[in-house]
């Protein structure tokens, strides 16, 4: 590979990790261009959207190169975003060669700050916390805690089999609703609405909403639109899951009103 292509490959790989882990578009674009500049490439074009990176270097010369990467929306991993940020800072201060940068990137790619057990517990604590904040009692929070744990286990398993995100959101919220309503019908004396709200909070599209707005604000209307659409559809999927489950319980209970 000619040198310009190697540099392009590095820059675009860094951008790919960043984009996949939940970085904003302007951050990815800036990182890629800064790395290209740091290694002395003058003539470049970089275009980033939510699902892909397109870049060319030295178009008019012998060693022209162009690359396209398809980047599906992945799991949010802010540690990777922070680490790649650090790496790009080091590259810009000309502290590392291309091979070193590749090695560091490989490390970033595999880094995660929490194991599966921690994720499951965190999901439980998050659900319980929100149940309490939104008006549940401590008793309700405890129920929400277990539903949150159940939800995260389900999400991890479904993620392993590459289930579609829509299906995961619908089934996840249905699972939480079913759990809560079963306990309610069994006479556990819980405030079923607060428990459900606490339980579905981990599914709520907070990341897509925030990133979408930041993309729009950075002038990346297409990418911002994709993210906001994602947020809207995720919200609707949650509503469908919850609604369908309530309806099923209502039908089973002979039309009694549940709350």
């Amino acid at each position: 590979m000619s040198e310009s292509k190697e540099i392009l490959n590095l820059a675009i790989s860094v951008g790919e990790v960043l984009l996949k882990s939940g970085g904003e578009i302007y951050r990815v674009q800036e990182t890629v261009t800064r790395i290209l500049e740091a290694y002395g490439i003058q003539d470049y074009h970089v275009f980033v959207i939510t699902n892909g990176i397109f870049a060319t270097v030295s178009e008019q010369q012998e060693d022209a190169g162009s690359m396209v990467r398809y980047v599906p929306i992945g799991e949010v991993n802010l540690k990777r975003v922070a680490e790649v940020n650090q790496l790009s800072r080091e590259i810009c201060e000309k502290k590392c060669s291309i091979t070193e940068a590749h090695e560091q990137l490989e490390q970033c790619r595999n880094s995660a700050s929490a194991g599966n057990l921690a994720l499951v517990l965190a999901c439980g604590v998050g659900s319980a916390g929100f149940c309490y904040l939104l008006g549940g009692r401590i008793y309700d929070s405890m129920v929400s805690f277990f539903l949150g744990i159940l939800l995260e286990i389900f999400l991890l398993l479904a993620g392993k089999y590459h289930a579609s995100r829509f299906l995961m959101n619908i089934l996840g919220s249905a699972l939480v609703t079913a759990g809560s309503l079963t306990l309610y019908v069994a006479g556990a004396g819980i405030l079923s609405d607060k428990v459900i709200i606490g339980g579905i909070i981990p599914l709520v599209p907070g990341v897509a909403l925030t990133t979408g707005i930041r993309d729009l604000f950075g002038g990346d209307y297409l990418s911002g639109g994709i993210r906001l659409m994602d947020a809207l559809l995720t919200g609707m999927c949650i509503a469908i899951g919850v609604g369908a489950m309530i309806k099923i319980f209502q039908l089973l209970g002979g039309g009694t009103l549940l709350l």
Binding site: V76, I197, I201, G206, T210, I238, A239, V242, G243, I246
Partner: peptide, 22 residues
Amino acid sequence: TVFLITGIFTLVPGTGIYYTSY
């Protein structure tokens, strides 16, 4: 983003989604 995404979660309208579908 690290601080913004995590902080915003307390405000995202999960309650609204629930009651709408309810």
